[in-house]
Design a protein around this nucleic acid. Structure first.
Lengths: 202, 202, 202, 202
DNA sequence: TATGAATGAGCGTTCATTCAT
DNA sequence: CATGAATGAACGCTCATTCAT
C-alpha cells in the first residue's frame, strides 16, 4: 500500500518515521499550489519540517521528488478507484461517484485547478526527465471509466470515457479560470443525467 | 484593434520596425512551449534577436511581458471571433468553425496543451500581478459561444457555452497528456453532431 | 556671472535656452537629496525635462555633471560671500550673516545634511576623477571667514575660521542624524554670542 | 555583549569560525572607505574571502549587511564608552579621552571622514529601511557626553554635549575635505583647554 | 542639435546541489 | 543518517554610455 516503487530506506527504528512521507506530502501540496518551477527545495524542506540538506537522503534530485509526487498521485488515484470498486457495484453509480470524488474539492480547484491535470500540463511542457509516468494521471481514470462503460455493454466505451474525463478536466480549467466552483457542481448534475440516460445492455 | 493598451513607444520610422512585435512573438511562443516560470528573458531576447538589455526598453519587467502576451492572446481571440462572425452567418456554423479553429493546431496542442488554457492555469497559480485579465482568455470565447446559443433561441445558452468550451479545454488536456492529437478530431466530430442535433427556434 | 568655466555652447537661438541650466539644477538637487551614486542620468534627464540622450551634448559623462554641479556650488558660494561683502561692512556682522545664510535651510539640512559637506564627503570617498575642486566647497568659506577674523585683528584667524566652519558643519551632521532642525538655530545663537564676545582691534 | 540582535547561525564548532565576523569586518571597512552604494556584495565577498553566494547564508540582503554594520558600530561605540568609564573616573578626563579616541584615526579620517558621521549621512539620504538605528551612532556619544557634563554639575549639559560632538564631527568633515589630519589634533588641543576651563561644581 | 533606441557589463539575489562532520 | 554550511551558475533587472538618424 505504501510501496513507493523506488528504493526507499526500510522503516527501521533508526529512520525518523514518516519523514519521507512528510516530504512527499509537503512537496505534493506545494507543487499543486505553487507550481513545479516555483516550488523550491527549501520550501519543501520547511513545510515538511526537515532540514534542507537532509532531503537528499530521501531524494536524489528535485526531479526525483517530482517523480515521487507523480507516483504518489498515481497510487492515490488507484486507491480511490479501488475504493469506488468496493463501495459501488453498479457502473453508473461508480461513474457518478468518480465525478463526485474528483470534483469534491471544487474550492481548491477554483484556486489551483485539477491536481492531476495541471501537474500533467506543467510537466509535459517542461519535459522533465522524459517521464511517461505523468500521463498515467490521466490515463488511469480514463481506463477505469472505459471499463465501466464497457461493463455497461457500450461498444464506444473508450470514446465515452474520454468524453467523460474531458468534461471533468475541461470544467476544472474553466472553474479555475473563472474562479467559479459552482461550475463543477452544475457539470456534475449534467453528467449524472447523461449517465442515467445512457442505454445499457447490462 | 491592435492597440496594446500599455505605453509602447510610438511606431515611428526611427524605431527598428517590429522589434516589439518580435519580442512579443518570441515571448508568446516560449511562454507557451516552456511555461512562464521556465522561460528566461535571455531566452526571449535570443529568440527575438534582441540584446538582453534592450528588452527593458519595451517592457519594464518580465511580468509586463507576460501581461502583454496575455493581451496579445486576447486580441488574437477577439480577431478570430470577429473573423468567424464575418465568415459565418449561421450560429451553428460559427460554433463548428470555432472548434475547428481552436483544435486546428492539434499537433502543437498534443505537445503543449491549449495556449489559453495552460497559460491561464499557470498564471492563476503563481498569482502574478493580481491579473484578472487572464480569465478573459477563457471568458471571451465562452461569452461568444453563449451568444451563438442564445441566437439559436436557447434559454440555457450559458450552460451550453460552458459545456462547449469545457469540452474543448478538457479534450486539449487529454490530448496533451496522452500525446494523441486524434482525440481533438474525434471530439470535433462529436460536437458537430451534437450541435446539428440541437433544437433551434431561429 | 553665468560663466561655467568649461566650453559650453553659446547661448544662441538654436539652443533651447536654459537647457544646460535646467540639467545642472536638476542634477544639483538630486545629487543633494539622493546622493551621487544613487542618482541616475535618467533621473536627472526626467527632472530637467530633457531627453536622456541629449544630456551628452551638454555633459560628456556623469562625472562631468558631478564636476559641473560642484562648480555651480562653488559659484553659488562665491556669489553668496560677495553678496555678504556688499550687504555688511562689519566683519562680525558678516560672520553672523554667513551662519544665518548657511543654516537658513535647516529643514532641508535635517533631511539631507549640508549640501556642501555631504557632497564633499561622498566625492572624497569614491575618489571621482581625482577632483581637487570639491575641497573648495569647504575651503572658500573658511578662507572668507579667516579674512573676516583677520580684519578683526585676530592673529589666530585661520584657527578661528576652522572652528567656525567646523561648528556649522558638525551641527549640520548632528541636525541630519537626529532630524532636529532646532540644533542649528541654537548653535547660531551660541556662535553669535561668541562672535560678539571676541576681542577686536579693528 | 557581542550579541548581534539578529538571527545569526549558532557559533558551533561546525561553522567555519569567524566567517560572519570576517564578512562583517570586510563590509564595515568597504562601506566606510567606498561608501554604501558603491560597495558591491562581490567586493565584500572577495575582501572576506567568502564565495559570493555564501554571503546570503549569513545575511539575507545587502540592507541586512548594512544594518549589521551599523549595529557593529553601535556595539563598538558602547564598548569604547564603557572602556572609558572604566579607565577614567573624572568626567573631564573622560571627555578628553573620548576626543582622543575618536580623533585617533586622523589619517583615515582625512581620507574617508568619520566612520559614524559619513555612514549616518549616506544612510539618512538614501533612506534605507526606515532605520532609526543609524541615528544612534551619533546619539549615543552625545548622551554619554551629556552625562559627563551633567556629572560636572552643568545645567546646560545637553547643549554642551551637542557642541562637543559637533566640534568633532565638523572638524572631521573639514579634515576630510582639506585632507589635513592636523586639524583634528589642533581641535583636540582647543577642546582640552576648553574643558579644563569649564566651571564644575563636582 | 536633438532624440529614441541600443548595448553590455555588472548588480543584488536565488537555488539546486554538494560537502564535511 | 543528519545537518549546517558552501558553492557557482543563472536569474531579473539597472544604467552609463553610444548609436543612427
Amino acid at each position: 500500500m505504501t510501496d513507493s516503487g523506488d528504493s526507499r530506506p526500510a522503516d527501521t527504528v533508526l529512520t525518523r518515521p514518516g519523514k519521507r512521507e512528510r516530504l512527499l506530502g509537503a512537496a505534493a501540496d506545494l507543487l499543486y499550489r505553487e507550481g513545479v518551477e516555483k516550488t523550491t527545495l527549501a520550501d519543501i524542506a520547511q513545510a515538511a519540517g526537515v532540514p534542507l540538506g537532509n532531503i537528499y537522503y530521501y531524494f536524489k534530485t528535485k526531479d526525483a521528488i517530482v517523480d515521487a509526487v507523480v507516483e504518489a498521485h498515481v497510487r492515490g488515484i488507484k486507491e480511490m478507484l479501488a475504493s469506488l470498486d468496493r463501495r459501488y457495484r453498479n457502473p453508473k453509480g461508480r461513474l457518478k461517484a468518480l465525478f463526485r470524488t474528483l470534483a469534491g474539492q471544487h474550492d481548491r480547484i477554483a484556486q489551483y485547478g485539477c491536481p492531476h491535470g495541471t501537474l500533467c500540463s506543467e510537466l509535459e511542457k517542461t519535459g522533465r526527465a522524459g517521464e511517461p509516468a505523468v500521463a498515467r494521471l490521466i490515463e488511469i481514470p480514463i481506463a477505469w471509466t472505459e471499463e465501466q462503460f464497457r461493463s455497461m455493454g457500450r461498444r464506444d466505451a473508450r470514446d465515452l470515457a474520454v468524453e467523460f474525463i474531458a468534461s471533468y478536466q475541461g470544467t476544472a480549467v474553466l472553474t479555475q479560470a473563472l474562479r467559479e466552483p459552482a461550475l463543477l457542481s452544475r457539470e456534475g448534475r449534467r453528467l449524472e443525467r447523461w449517465i442515467d440516460s445512457l442505454d445499457t445492455s447490462e
